[in-house]
Every structure is written in structure tokens, then in C-alpha cells.
Design a protein around this nucleic acid. Sequence first.
DNA 1: CCGCCTCACTGACACGTGTAACTTGATCGT
DNA 2: ACGATCAAGTTACACGTGTCAGTGAGGCGG
Lengths: 330, 330
Amino acid sequence: MNDATPRRVTSADVARVAGVSRATVSYVLNNTPHQTISAGTRARVLDAAAGLGYAPSAAARTLRTGRSDVVLCLLPDWPIGSEVGALLGHLSAELARAGLTFLAHPGTRPGHPVGPLWRAISPAAVLAFSGFPAAERDAMRAAGVAPVVAPLSRPGPGTAGPQQRVGALQVAHLAAAGHTRVGYAYPDDDRVRVFADPRLEGVRVRCAELGLGLPEVRTVPLEPEPAATAVRGWRASGVTAVCAYNDEVALAVLAGLRRLSPGAPGRLAVIGVDDIPVARLAEPALTTVTTDQAALAAHLATAVLAAVHGEPDPELDLAAAIHVVPRDSA
Amino acid sequence: MNDATPRRVTSADVARVAGVSRATVSYVLNNTPHQTISAGTRARVLDAAAGLGYAPSAAARTLRTGRSDVVLCLLPDWPIGSEVGALLGHLSAELARAGLTFLAHPGTRPGHPVGPLWRAISPAAVLAFSGFPAAERDAMRAAGVAPVVAPLSRPGPGTAGPQQRVGALQVAHLAAAGHTRVGYAYPDDDRVRVFADPRLEGVRVRCAELGLGLPEVRTVPLEPEPAATAVRGWRASGVTAVCAYNDEVALAVLAGLRRLSPGAPGRLAVIGVDDIPVARLAEPALTTVTTDQAALAAHLATAVLAAVHGEPDPELDLAAAIHVVPRDSA
DNA sequence: CCGCCTCACTGACACGTGTAACTTGATCGT
DNA sequence: ACGATCAAGTTACACGTGTCAGTGAGGCGG
């Protein structure tokens, strides 16, 4: 007896049950402005929709309006840490509150074209962490898709973005502790250059502002032995404090330090970035720079909403969301 | 002169340029079986499509076929670590090879209903890490959406899933080193119980098999001081080795250990899970159980494909993908 | 009584695609 | 020679939605 292919509940079903036309159902459910619906009819439609468990087809709606309620987030192939995970979670919740569906697509490689993806989905906005090629950005705008670039690198030429600020805060903390000769522990992973380079730039600029001389940059792999080599080099040139790209890189520096002089690991100050859970468990506990992911997510959400509505980018201040967590390592 | 609203390139445009009907275009681009198309026509259509930059509308296709090529992955709100990140990346690449688009939706809370989401998207499959309520699973099946549950917990009653195997491997490694009295470091985060409980069960079962007696379970927060308290407790009851839920929890145990006896941290063996990058940087370097995320992703991809095609779940062996990484801590 | 306006609602079309059903020559077996 | 088969297409419909243009009914001023 049961139909083998149980058809989806459509707005026509709702209309039939409520005893009105399909157009009326659409007007009621979308709260269409300038359309007057009597209270009784409205209630009947709402009841029928709830009773049938009606959920509109996103496909049909997208086809009709030309734009879906999806915000497509292109995740590069750099390692997703817990901070990025938290950021995505917050962002999803924030956008859901505005009626948008947040969907992340992992594994966007620089060479791989993303055009087919957003052309297929027709999202309301595309959020990326590295910028789009100009041609692609224009194509998206032409198709009515709002391109949004997370302001993780510098927002404009000459101005400092959040990443630059991270580096600057590292140096400021070290300088306040009396250090004058600083090093930079650069990551051994090409995929994270998008972050590493602006952070290093922030370090350079702040060093110059404080009259500290250029930071001595060394690439530090996540292994104790090579890290020890880097530490030896810094010590030889009188470096007393190191800004690390990352908490992980910072922990590598600490490991290298420990390998060189197991007794007195405190001779080189180290400051990381991210405040990963392990940071407070290190020996010594790692001083680091953290970002309030909830605040960042809120900012990105408003940026996405502005872009979707065609308004200009809001000039929000992210400075308050980034701060130093002082512990024992610096 | 330029049209203000640059219409999307449709298959009708391709048909016009190629000088054929729209149906022919569809047949050519979809390689429809049992449809004979001459080589010349096929080439003309393909050229026209490429020349115009034609990308089919996923919305229209979904509307017509009733099913989209999206695989929707529901991410719970537990912390996304680098391993999960890598898994998602591999999974995305793997499914893309099969013509499916992988999209992740973060922030699925247990209470929050997911029905509207998949009803709207009409994905080919929905991949979740914790099981679906029976009613929801049936509703999905009825709507032609294939529900797939990642086999992270036990696949069937009585049999051991990957998580149980992780715990079993931990115990086996410790027992092989001569330990007879083991403890379990349980995480201080309710959100990860889905993983913690089956892992602990694997530990319990293997302990019983080896005649080791029940493991002594203690909750270990990610702070040195409380971790030290837990370590003191284990020592008092003669525990000589600890299985940790996580590498992070394992590092907390090591930190607690260090706090108690700075000189001789080697008196308690510790084994973690995940092999996070920091594991090899710890002091002592952390022995851990790791999962080959690429292999796991390949398995999940075949499971998704089987579900999409209506075939039964493939009985793949994940045992080979999980193994111990021996270092210094155990 | 007529014209005009608002209210509350309906009919019909378009969005872009997949595919079943049909058409038209050409070829082939007998 | 003649119907049957087949290659190579075309025509037409359906999917579910948003929304423009109507359409009666009732109220109201003149």
C-alpha cells in the first residue's frame, strides 16, 4: 500500500491542506512585504506547513531566485588546528542566526580552480582566506556572488592587519622584558606562508620602531635535533629572545633548548602564537599571543552579511581580540 | 552597452552556439548511455561549452534529479584537531575524484535538529560521526538521502570498532613492556565522550584478556596542578603505566609528573593517541597510537560511495591503519 | 449609480536541467 | 523490394519555487 517513492512535501501540498493557492502559501511563509494576508488564512497555512513537516526545496528556491542561502567557505590545505575549528564553529552559529547556511569545502589547492564549485552552488557569498585572482573576483561579482576575503593578511597597503599585529605584540612583550636582540622562528611548511610572512613583517616593523635591529630569522622544523641547531645559531649571535610563528614551532624551540642544556632551559625567551591547549603544559609554560576566535567569527559574520547586502566592508577593530597570554617562557 | 545583469551561461547557449538542440547538449555532457552522438557533433558541443565557460547549475540539476552531488558532513561541536582537519581534506579529495562535492557543516549540537538542513540541501549522502536517531535515519532514506555513520564507535554489538582497537593497542604496548597495573587518563571535556568511552572500553576489554585487572580511571584536566593530583593517586595505588585518551591528556600527565618529581620524570609510563606534531617534542618524547588518516579517508569515501549507490556497507579492515608509534614515554 | 481604491487572494510564467517519447533518413536481412 | 532495425537527433514535459499581473468583493465619495 505504501508508495515506494514517498514524494517530498511541497508547497502545493500545504496549499491543498490549507485550502488556499500556492502563491498564498509562498507569501505567508516568506513574509512577503506589501502583501496583505488575513490573520485566519495565515494561521491555517502555518498550521498546515507545520503539520506536514514542510521544508522548502533549496534547489528550487535557488533556481528561482538565482542565489542560495549558502555561505561557501574555501579552506586551504594548510593544517586545520583547533583554533580554526573553533572559528568555523562560531562562524556557522553566527551566520545561522542570520538565516545563512555555512558550508566549508576543505582542500582548496592554489592551482585547483574553484570556479566550477561556486558556479555550481551559486552561494550568497564565498569566504576565502587568501585573496582571489582579480578575474575570478570580477566573475563572481558578475554572477551575483559576493566574494569575501578574511582579513587575515593586510587589509590595505601600508596598514597593519591582524597577522602583523600578532607579530608586533610578540616583539612588544619581549622588548618590555628588556630583550634587545630577537630572533624569529619560521615554520618549515610552505603551506602556511600566508600567515608566516605577514607575522614576520609585523615583527620586523615593530623591531624597527623600537630600534631593536632586524630579527634573525631561522627556519625551525618540528624536530628536537634541527631545532637545537637553530638555537645554537641564535645563541652564537647574541639573540636572547625568539618570536615563534606558532605555538608548535615555539615548543620545538623549547625542545631544542632542552636538548642543548638540560639543566638550565631558561636562557632563551620564547613566545608563540595561538595558545593551543598544550601551551600551558610545556616546561616552562609557554607565553603566547592568542586571538579571541568568537570575536573574530563575529567580525567575519558581519563582513559576510555586509557583502551579501551589497554594503561596503565594515571597518571593525580587531585589535581588542588579540592579546598576549603571559606565562613563564618569556 | 554592457548588460547590467550578465545572465548565466546555460545549456541553451551552448546548444545555440553548437547548432544543436539543448537535449543533445545534455546527452553529450553527461555521456548518457544508449544515446548515440556522432563524433563531429560531440566535438562541436564540447568546444562550445568550453568556449563559453559553461558550468551547469547545480540547483536546476538537483531540482530535476531530486538529488544533488553534495556529500554533507555534519561536524559535531567537539574540538577539531589537526587530525580531523587532515581527514576532511583527504575525504574531500577522494570524493571529488568520484564527482561528489564534499561540504562540511560545523557546529551540529545534539539538541539542534538537522532535518531542515539536509531537507534543504538534498544531498546524495549525509556523513555523521555519531549515529542518527532511528526516525531521522528512516526519514532520510525515504527522501533518497543516504545516511552514513563514520565507523568511529563500534560498528555492531559485541564487535570492536576502531576506537576500541585504539585502546586495545595502548594496553598491548604497555603490557609488552612488562607493566601489569595500568591507569586510564580520562578527558575533562564532555563533548568528546563519543570517543573517550569506546576507547576506555577497548582498554578494559584488553586488560581483562591479558589478566591485568581493571584500569584505574582518573579524569585529567589540561592543567599541571590537577594532573599532578591524578598522578599522585595512581602512584599511591601502584599504577606504573597510563593510557591517555589523547596526546593532549598524555602531555598533561607528563606535566603533572614533572611537577611532582622534577628530577626523575620517567617513573610512570604514558601512551597517548593521535600523534599530534607536539608529541615528538615532549620530554620524554611521547609514545602514542596513530591512525593513518589517508587510509581512513579512503575507507569512508568507499563507504559513502557504496551508500550512494545503494550497496551494503563494505566490510573494510581498518586494523592496518592504526598502529603504535613507539618513542620514549612508554 | 459610477468610478476608484484597498483587501485578500489566485493564475500563470520563468528559472535551467534530465529524460522519455517521438521523428527522420539510412542501412540491412531476406 | 520492403518492412525492420538503427543512428542521430529533436520536442515536450516535469521538478518546486518566487512573483507579476489580475480579479472579485466590499467600502466610499460624489
